[in-house]
């Protein structure tokens, strides 16, 4: 055998094992792909064949976008105010979370104060705490301060629960910035606040983007608190709406559910398409290269 032949054999071997790896990965991801395909096909057809092949294309399932829908005897709300509620909820959560975590993360990264270690440790525990366990207690609290059945109430709860993680993430980004750069800003005439937003924040833009995206998506997909704390239909969010569509499974319109589900996913997909480039450059707690 010549060297060349050996090389070819090795190549063949590696490409063979590569094929095996790809096959395995494809098989593993099939259920997810299948699920999304079903969702898509189901949303644009009367009926689905073999699970994923659409038959007799129709836009009927998307009718919730332009008309009132009724299932059985139940009349559903117009989707648009509900979408607006969802945007409001996710948007407020994002704004608050980013703002607070930027300030708190800076303080935890840059300042020394008594109790700092304690705060750092407890925030992690807080994040590990299952939110559902707090449901009843939170209900009492919200009721007491008059925030029950208000989107603001859900925003506050969600922000409080997500904040520790966001703060930790942001703190990591701040930690990466050398002291000298901050000092240079002071020497150039910056106050602490000016140094924070003129010199430091621009350098952790990717971190801010990451926290914002995670906050928005968490807010957008928030279900359990909205479902528990919001009862007036004018306060419903998309997640609650979707749950109501399913109802008690008696009159289930699968096509409609698929379309509404897809509609609900649009911002998530859009976010990832837009931000995937900047997301891959982010390691947690830092900026790559």
């Amino acid at each position: 055998m010549t060297v060349r032949e050996v090389m070819q054999m090795i190549n063949a071997k590696t490409s063979l094992s590569r094929i095996a790896i790809y096959l395995l990965l494809i098989i593993l991801s099939l259920p997810i792909v299948f699920g999304y395909l079903w969702l898509f096909s189901g949303s644009i057809s009367e009926e689905v064949e073999f699970g994923i092949v659409p038959k007799s294309i129709t836009l009927k399932n998307w009718r919730f976008l332009w008309s009132e829908i009724t299932i059985g005897t139940k009349v559903f709300e117009n989707i648009w105010p509900i979408t607006l509620n969802s945007i409001l909820l996710a948007g407020s959560i994002t704004l608050l979370e980013v703002l607070i975590s930027l300030l708190a993360g800076y303080a935890l990264s840059r300042m020394n104060f008594p109790g700092k270690d304690f705060i750092l440790k407890t925030t992690i525990i807080l994040h590990a705490f299952p939110g559902v366990a707090l449901l009843i207690a939170l209900y009492y609290v919200l009721n007491y301060i008059g925030m029950i059945d208000k989107i603001t109430g859900v925003v506050l709860v969600k922000v409080a629960l997500e904040l520790p993680m966001a703060t930790w993430m942001i703190k990591g980004f701040f930690d990466e910035i050398p002291w000298e750069i901050e000092w240079a800003a002071y020497m150039d005439g910056c106050s602490r606040l000016q140094a924070w937003y003129k010199v430091i924040l621009p350098q952790i833009k990717p971190g801010i983007a990451a926290v914002a995206i995670f906050a928005f998506l968490a807010g957008w997909s928030e279900f359990i608190y909205s479902y528990t704390f919001l009862f007036s239909s004018e306060n419903y969010t998309l997640a609650v709406f979707l749950k109501n569509l399913i109802g008690d499974f008696r009159f289930l319109d699968y096509g409609l559910l698929a379309a509404a589900g897809l509609f609900y996913m649009i911002p998530v997909i859009a976010f990832f398409l837009i931000s995937q480039k900047s997301l891959v450059t982010i390691k947690f707690g830092g900026i790559k290269g």
Binding site: P178, E180, I181, W183, A184, A185, Y186, M187, D188, G189, C190, S191, V199, P202, Q203
Partner: peptide, 20 residues
């Protein structure tokens, strides 16, 4: 007196230029 009010020009060992 705060650093910003001392009117000092400083050149750091690590340069500390603003990367953005």
């Amino acid at each position: 007196v705060l650093p910003k009010d001392r009117n000092i020009g400083m050149c750091f060992q690590s340069y500390a230029l603003y990367p953005h």
